[in-house]
């Protein structure tokens, strides 16, 4: 009934994956080590930095505070998946144009978090953007450029009616 190792089947970025994982393995380590999806990053392993942010069944979660074994039957999406589908291509372009990233280590998590905000709040204030991103650590930018980029995309999406 219980085991140190478990078989799981899940979809990751639309692909069905069947793997045997150690129960102790976090989702982000599974994505990186077992599936080679290194776009999700490990920054602190205690839930504070947000670099490991991925989507689980449609909502963002900390990849370091979720076990891979818990994702049996789940749908997981990572920055690689969102990039391939083009779901947040406008956000990515805005980050690039506005230089809203420097080292880029926080960026995948930042993008997934911003994408979730814009799905629920079409034109958030700068303050609301800052609040929603408050769990994603960036040491490089000072956040101003990130807020600019998210704000610009929000306005553009609202303007184009998408």
């Amino acid at each position: 009934m219980s085991s140190l190792q478990c078989d799981i089947t899940l979809t990751v970025n639309g692909e069905t994956i069947r793997e045997t994982v150690e129960a102790r393995k976090t989702l982000v380590d599974f994505l990186r080590d077992d599936l080679g999806l290194t776009g999700s990053h490990v920054g602190c392993e205690h839930g504070f930095c947000g670099a490991c942010t991925v989507r689980l069944n449609g909502v963002i979660v900390r990849g370091c505070l979720t076990l891979a074994v818990q994702c049996d039957g789940a749908k997981v999406e990572t920055i690689e998946g969102l990039s391939d589908t083009g779901e947040c291509a406008d956000l990515q372009t805005a980050f690039e144009t506005r230089n809203a990233l420097q080292c880029g280590f926080c960026t995948p998590g930042m993008l997934l978090t911003a994408q979730e905000l814009l799905a629920s709040d079409r034109v958030p204030s700068r303050e609301a953007i800052r609040e929603h991103l408050s769990g994603n650590y960036c040491r490089c930018t000072g956040y101003h450029a990130i807020v600019d980029a998210v704000e610009a995309v929000a306005k553009a999406r609202a303007g184009s009616g998408t």
């Binding site: 776009g39 920055i79 990039s83 980050f95 990233l101 880029g104 960026t107």
Partner: peptide, 12 residues
């Protein structure tokens, strides 16, 4: 070199 990083295709 930024698109690589926004797409999670960096190599740290």
């Amino acid at each position: 070199n930024l698109a690589r990083l926004t797409q999670g295709r960096g190599h740290y």
